[in-house]
Design a protein around this nucleic acid. Structure first.
Length: 885
DNA sequence: ATACATACC
DNA sequence: TACTGGTATGTAT
């Protein structure tokens, strides 16, 4: 506004507040009038004030961008253009039009369910939600500008007759289960994005379908029995018109007619009734059939998009909404034509803010996107402009990635102002309880606790702390969360926190046994020669139906642009359940014959568990120092490794791969197709540019750190013979392996002699085990090196450690254990790996000491002051401490 | 690692 | 009576 940015759109009000008429059912509305009402309802509210602030932040961001743009020289632009062109043509070669991806989306789902169950509502404008917030609205209501994510009270102003129905998730979930059963018939590995939405890969179904007899493509109209029932009995009241009547929503101007209406193709005219419909073998017929079955089963309609990739399918499903479908033919011409006029905002992943930034650059449609790519590459981050380039070319994921394990779990609640410390703490505890319950259901533990606070001015804060161990119980979570909360109170003191929302989240999951992913990657790295086969074995474990993917160019990095939202509800289906499949038999404690190292590992895990318990109980926590100490050399070196691939992505990958192929025994394979060292699939090209582009894509995804929870550490369970193929673990192993292979630097980092223990023996025979039985030793209260404490002796290298910090100590043991594995495997591995036991290492004790003290520096109070004392130190918070006695 | 912002349903 | 809740990811520090 002041800076002239907002005026680029010619609107006098906040763009963030304005009606989003992007969605279906919102065409041809009186936007100005609606926006006026929205503004009037909002103006002056704290919410509005906060939106104003955020709007200005966005404007500043845009201003900054424009300044940058102004400084771009013609020369830079030309250079960028050349790069963009090269990239584009390389990426172009990875285009795959062979898959048939379908995105299905129920029409106004919650509202439709409610209307179905309450016919009174059918002709009325209605919405599901509350006076505070609406989840969705029916199409009647949309005509008034009433839509999802709008507060009910504003909706009421737009449409005084609006009926608001409270949400009933159990019901939606039940319906969702019904439609998912149908989805599974077309793609058993369909990916639900929420209760009402899913991606399906129809490719396989269509191949089979070609040979299906007509009877298998015949479906009954509205019967109580299953739709695939072959029985030829006539329905008592199966007349065609009734179908339309039963439909919960009347779409007068629906772009496509209901499949069972007269006039549709393939109606099987059972005399007089038309009780059956036969569907053809084409994609469109198959999708129509699926939608038909959904409607027959649930009385609800769905829309679908058919396209060669996920991004396009998503856009297409919106095209003929409601109750319609749209197919984008799998030709480059059709795709490019479709893309040109597509508003950027329609693309999943480009939201309000991105749209506004692009608009400021004169970009509103995808054709502009392509035209401005050079500029975008200079102004946007690499991931961002790569994504935009994909979009501009109409590219997207051609396979539907299965959801991995969840990465976080949280609970949050909004309430009327809460400003009493005691109430805030008790609420916090309640939230922790809820979260703990949910965590238990999925048998998860996490190391990072995040507290989220929103004050009455709608300002949101998050405060996080990462522990050296994983937690899951109320007490454990609360022990951390309450300290985070306390800290915030102190910061605000003497004013009270005036909260309107509080939330608690757990992340940095670790499998229930608190295992670590790091070690197995080393095994994977060392495993000789069987990379290719193990790759496919893994895939058979994971997703056998996707074997064909091996021959596909996979635009892995575009996955990031695909919506990855789970659901709105905690009890939603959890695809990640069963992630331990195939691992159960290999748990540490169940091994009949454990090696010394296995026992050591077991013991260490027990120790960790014990620590978590001790820490939660009693001793006032000094949690603020824990997180900073969680790092040590091992972890930082792991991070260094992970950062390498992205750096390398800048260079010529192929050359490096080829150089290494002889020693690593993998990488470039046959002459007419190349094996991607990241995703391990065959890329059917001999063009190195195309191949490099493919790898770049894969890298930008794989350079993300692996999810610890996907990788229970089986290094010892699998004995030291190498990488056994066990479920997902293998997948991780492979990914790590690939990263490791990429550079000699990796070896340098990974096997930095400084990280390896000297092999000389120490005469101190005391083992860690006897020590760790001492319950006074916890990583919670690390003793500085100068302090007296039990001596810690590494059970592997037998050396006394110059630390009393169990975190540091455990990492040392980890390293030693790794070393053992390396030594053993090293005998069967190319000599490029030095047996580090022989290397002359700098004083390890010194190294650890340095790390320990680095952590100590971050402590806020003296290490010698017991945490319990510190907890009592808040004069202003006496009542709080009392509260927690 | 932490904080914040953006996005999706 | 006055603007959600759950999850993921990107960006900056």
């Amino acid at each position: 506004m002041d800076n002239g940015v907002a005026s680029t759109k010619g609107e006098g009000f906040l763009s963030r507040m304005a009606l989003n008429d992007n969605k279906a059912g919102m065409e041809g509305l009186d936007r100005d009038k609606i926006n006026k009402i929205i503004m009037e309802s909002s103006k002056g509210s704290r919410f509005y004030e906060n939106e104003l602030k955020r709007e200005q932040q966005v404007n500043q961001r845009i201003e900054k961008m424009m300044l940058q743009k102004a400084q771009v020289t013609e020369q830079q632009l030309q250079k960028a253009q050349a790069q963009v062109d090269r990239m584009a043509s390389a990426v172009e070669k990875t285009r795959d039009l062979s898959r048939v991806i379908v995105h299905v989306d129920m029409d106004a789902f919650y509202a439709a369910v409610e209307m179905r169950d309450c016919p009174e509502l059918k002709d009325k404008p209605m919405a599901v939600g509350s006076m505070s917030m609406l989840s969705t609205s029916n199409y009647h209501a949309r005509k008034y500008g009433v839509r999802a994510a709008m507060p009910g009270f504003i909706a009421k102003k737009l449409c005084p007759n609006l009926v608001i129905v409270p949400t009933n998730f159990d019901k939606y979930r039940a319906v969702s289960d019904e439609i998912r059963e149908i989805f599974a018939d077309y793609d058993p590995h369909f990916q639900p994005m929420s209760l009402d939405e899913a991606y399906l890969d129809f490719t396989d179904h269509l191949h089979q379908r070609q040979h299906w007899p007509e009877s298998s493509r015949t479906h009954r109209l509205r019967g109580s029995s299953a739709t695939t029932d072959e029985e030829q009995s006539e329905l008592p009241q199966g007349a065609v018109p009734e179908v339309k009547d039963l439909s919960p929503i009347l779409f007068e101007d629906s772009p496509s007619s209901s499949p069972c209406l007269p006039g549709s193709d393939g109606i099987a005219a059972a005399p007089g009734f038309g009780a059956f419909e036969v569907f053809g073998t084409s994609v469109e017929e198959a999708v129509r059939e699926m939608r038909f079955r959904i409607e027959q089963k649930t009385t609800l309609t769905a829309s679908a998009g058919i396209a060669p990739n996920m991004m396009l399918a998503k856009v297409c499903s919106d095209k003929n909404k409601p109750n319609g479908q749209y197919r984008l033919p799998p030709t480059r011409a059709a795709v490019m034509d479709f893309i040109q006029s597509l508003p950027v905002r329609k693309v999943s992943g480009i939201g309000k803010v991105s749209e506004k930034m692009l608009n400021a650059l004169g970009i509103s449609s995808c054709s502009h996107l392509g035209q401005q790519m050079a500029l975008l590459s200079l102004l946007f981050s690499e991931t961002a402009w790569h994504h935009l380039m994909q979009v501009s070319l109409g590219l997207g994921s051609t396979y539907i990635p299965s959801h991995e394990e969840r990465k976080s779990m949280s609970t949050e609640r909004t309430f009327k102002e809460l400003n009493k410390a005691e109430e805030q703490f008790s609420l916090c505890r309640e939230l922790c309880g809820d979260l703990a319950e949910d965590m238990k259901k999925e048998d998860l533990k996490g190391k990072t606790v995040t507290l989220k606070l929103k004050n009455v001015k709608f300002e949101v804060k998050t405060r996080a702390l990462t522990l050296p161990y994983a937690v899951a119980t109320v007490d454990e979570i609360f022990a951390v969360a309450k300290d985070l909360l306390k800290t915030e109170m102190e910061n605000e003191s003497p004013q009270p926190l005036r909260l309107r929302l509080m939330g608690v989240r757990l992340s940095a999951f670790v499998s229930s046994d608190d295992k670590k992913p790091l070690q197995k990657s080393i095994i994977g790295f060392l495993q000789p020669g069987k990379t290719d086969s193990s790759g496919s074995v893994q895939r058979m474990h994971q997703k056998p139906e996707k074997e064909h993917l091996c021959n596909q160019p996979v635009q892995t990095w575009t996955v990031a642009c695909v919506p990855t939202t789970q659901t709105c509800e905690k009890l939603e289906e959890v695809p990640w359940q069963g992630k331990h499949r195939g691992l159960e038999g290999g748990q540490t404690g169940e091994q009949p014959q454990q090696s010394f190292f296995q026992r050591a590992q077991t013991k260490r895990l027990q120790l960790k568990a014990a620590n978590s318990c001790t820490q939660v109980e009693g001793h006032g926590l000094n949690t603020s120092s824990i997180g900073s100490r969680a790092q040590n050399g091992a972890e930082s070196s792991a991070r260094a490794i992970e950062s390498i691939p992205s750096d390398l992505a800048e260079n010529d990958f192929v050359a490096q791969e080829e150089a290494k192929a002889s020693t690593s025994g993998c990488g470039v394979t046959a002459s007419e197709s190349l094996t991607c060292p990241v995703c391990f699939r065959q890329v059917e090209t001999t063009d190195l540019n195309a191949f490099n582009a493919h790898i770049d894509q894969c890298l930008s995804e794989s350079s993300r750190p692996p999810n610890p929870s996907t990788s229970p550490d089986l290094d010892f369970e699998n004995d030291h013979k190498g990488c056994k193929v066990v479920g997902k673990w293998r997948e991780e192993c492979e990914a790590e392996e690939e990263k490791a292979k990429r550079s000699e630097e990796l070896e340098v980092n990974r096997f930095d002699p400084r990280l390896h223990p000297p092999s000389k023996k120490d005469d101190c025979a005391q083992t860690a085990f006897s020590i760790t039985d001492d319950k006074t030793v916890t990583s919670q209260q690390p003793l500085s090196c100068g302090e007296k404490g039990p001596v810690l002796t590494c059970p592997v290298c037998q050396l006394t450690q110059d630390t009393h910090d169990l975190t540091v100590f455990n990492h040392h043991v980890d390293l030693c254990l790794n070393q053992e594995v390396l030594n053993e495997l090293g005998e069967r591995t190319p000599p490029s790996i030095n047996p580090p036991a022989n290397s002359k290492a700098p004083d390890r004790g010194h190294l650890l000491l340095r790390q320990a003290s680095k952590g100590k520096n971050k402590r806020q109070d003296s290490p010698s002051s017991p945490p319990s004392k510190r907890a009592k130190g808040f004069g202003a918070l006496n009542t709080i401490d009392k509260f927690f006695r």
